[in-house]
Write a protein that binds this DNA or RNA. Structure first.
Lengths: 233, 233
DNA sequence: GCATGTGAATGGATTCACAGCT
DNA sequence: AGCTGTGAATCCATTCACATGC
């Protein structure tokens, strides 16, 4: 109780009306753009300028933002720093999110040390690997490798928010299940398999091969005639 | 001429009618599923079984496949090995695609050695890095690091199909432009920036942060009330 | 005047449901 | 009978265009 009354007083309007994944991914993109503008530096931007600069659609920008409040000033545009802050809050990265990565192979190690994660909101707490030879070592940046048996304890103790699967395809389902059992509620999967998802645990998959195959398809159709003006992001 | 007459004789029907990216990405997924079935082994599969097993929609599978020919047998289903072969051909990975990776940092190195690429259709020919200290060395699996000045020559000599950007955000645009100049016609970008695309060069971006942010958004909205039955791939 | 925020219109993609083949 | 391939129907996302407010 005492939870949902003050409805539109200054942007705390809750989504509640089912925001699509496409929308939230665009919010991240806007955030990226704003970071750039802030570094220029530039303090104000209109949806049109954003659209032109970064190949977006101005109406879509406005509509996406409108889902979460009224962040702009009519006749003026958006305050870069302010909008950035609002987007970070909307995406839930105003506080740090704790991450564990399963699989201390090439990919897992690279992700663990990826600066794009550590700077700004994501905190890789541990790598996990079933290979005893790897356990106890650390990544270049010092993230420790723990054994699978430690997962439940770490997940609780460090209140892990997100699990990343960077294990071979054959192990992915089992490790996913273990993460779910350990109470992790969001998983990002890099293994090239379809995970059997557990309801209530958010699953997203990034299949690196799919992207290459998609490019290959385009190349093939290019060779065979119509190249068109494709670009896409 | 002598190009488009024998229309539907055994599946060589050309797309020509603009296949969406979503469709081609699903083709890759189907291919992944077929590989699994082949390993079971299982020789025949219906769209319904595929759908049930891998959380897909049977009508969509049939519709996607129908874009490229009639691969199934009514009353029976699809031959796993045959369909797999057809999909590989459709995606243009029946022959090997040659890849160069820009950026010999953690991510670039991990991608270069990623087994998911090398096994089956993609051939990482070289890493490229502007750091002289890295040039001349190799990745764990032996892929050589070349300097940027070598790119045009390698691109021609090795007939590179695909460039991968694994460089820091600040360099991404320049390296992309260099790849375009070198005649590379498809680029996969891992840098968290919006690349200004060159027409006629296919660009796809994979932003690792976006995926984490998307999970974070979901977690946040979970905490604040409606969790729903989300899952998604 | 200028740019946001938004209903209405458009355009795509997914799903339904069945005709047609084996 | 069973399952594919496909028009029709539905659903969702994007874009347009304008009323609203600075």
């Amino acid at each position: 109780m005492a939870h949902g009354s003050r409805s539109n007083r200054h942007g705390s309007t809750p989504p509640r009306d089912a925001i699509s994944e496409l929308t939230t991914e665009r919010l991240s993109i806007y955030l990226r753009c704003l970071n750039y503008l802030e570094s220029i530096p530039q303090s104000t931007v209109s949806s049109q300028e954003l659209a032109k600069r970064f190949h977006l659609n101005s109406a879509q920008i406005r509509k996406d933002l409108a889902n979460f409040g009224e962040f702009g000033i009519r006749g003026v545009g958006y305050n870069v720093a302010l909008l950035k802050e609002r987007l970070q809050k909307t995406l839930g990265i105003d506080r740090s999110r704790r991450v564990v990565i399963a699989g201390a192979g090439n990919l897992g190690m690279a992700l663990a040390d990826y600066r794009g994660f550590s700077t700004g909101g994501f905190d890789v707490v541990a790598l996990m690997d079933s290979d005893p030879a790897k356990v106890g070592r650390t990544s270049k940046s010092g993230i420790p490798v723990i054994p699978p048996t430690e997962l439940p304890r770490i997940a609780k103790a460090e209140s892990i928010d997100i699990g990343i699967l960077a294990v071979p395809a054959e192990q992915a389902q089992d490790v996913y299940d273990a993460m779910v059992d350990a109470g992790i509620r969001a998983v990002l999967n890099f293994a090239p398999v379809r995970i059997n998802p557990h309801g209530n645990v958010k699953l997203k998959s990034v299949d690196l091969r799919i992207n290459l195959e998609s490019l290959s398809f385009w190349l093939k159709n290019c060779d065979e005639g119509d190249c068109g003006e494709e670009t896409e992001e």
